[in-house]
């Protein structure tokens, strides 16, 4: 078993045009920075990206949007990106906005081997259009399908050579869910350690879900809204 790859370029080298990708992160927190840079350098196009947000104009998925590499975004909130809004309004980019919990749960369902889930989010709204509904105990629910993604790109704090992952603070967010949901999951980590160094009780994502792992580099970890109080 050898899951360790040299770097992001090697990890993403077989991602083709038209691939369906999942990208972990919430805002710019916990995003797979190295994989995104490698995809920008590679110039792969016509991508479908499933990600809670779409980055900002000059960072994260925003870098791929700027190069017009993305055909479709599936997200819950895209408010921080002017280029995104421009492409959306001009029709260059297709966007499917879905509730954040639905996004998370459709990843979870994929990773748990369940084809679909029922959720009340979006009942009675335009999100429900065309979806099967069902009543349970007098309350209406929408049938939402598990995601199918060719590749999941996730960022963890630590990982080992078996692909086991540990996340840090709120940089966890969608990462463990997407790690479970990709047909091929690529994990970039701040610190890659030999098998046996992570406490098995404290692993968040079991390595069975992770196909490729590499030690990331030059993390910027940009802060979107720097809010502080005075001492």
């Amino acid at each position: 078993m050898n899951k360790v790859v040299l770097n992001a370029e090697e990890a993403v080298k077989d991602i083709p045009d038209g691939a369906v990708l999942m990208l972990g992160g919430f805002g710019l927190c916990g995003i797979p920075e190295n994989c995104i840079s490698a995809l920008v350098a590679k110039g792969v196009r016509e991508l479908t990206c499933i990600s809670n947000n779409a980055g900002v104009d000059d960072f994260g998925i925003g870098l791929m949007l700027k190069q017009k590499q993305v055909r479709k975004m599936i997200s819950s909130y895209v408010g921080e990106n002017a280029e995104f809004e421009r492409q959306l309004l001009s029709g260059e980019l297709e966007v499917e906005l879905i509730p954040q919990g639905t996004l998370a749960t459709r990843c979870l369902a994929a990773g748990y081997g369940m084809p679909a889930v029922f959720t009340p989010a979006g009942v009675g709204t335009e999100v429900a259009a065309g979806k099967e509904t069902r009543q349970f105990n007098g309350k209406e629910y929408l049938l939402e399908m598990a995601f199918e993604a060719d590749f999941a790109l996730v960022k963890a704090w630590k990982g080992d050579t078996m692909g086991n992952l540990v996340f840090r603070e709120t940089a966890r967010n969608f990462n463990p869910l997407m790690a479970m949901a990709g047909k091929i999951t690529i994990a970039e980590v701040e610190e890659l350690v030999p098998a046996g160094e992570l406490d098995p009780d404290l692993v968040h994502t079991p390595g069975i879900y992770v196909h490729r792992i590499f030690q990331g580099r030059d993390y910027q970890k940009r802060i979107e809204q720097r809010t502080v109080r005075k001492k």
Binding site: C29, L103, I223, E224
Partner: peptide, 25 residues
């Protein structure tokens, strides 16, 4: 400020004694 520790408005925040992290699902 810790870039790994933000709220749903993407603002930098802190934890308190007894805080816990979990995934989005």
């Amino acid at each position: 400020e810790d870039p790994d520790l933000i709220n749903a408005g993407k603002q930098t925040i802190t934890t308190v004694p007894g805080s816990v992290f979990f995934d989005s699902a």
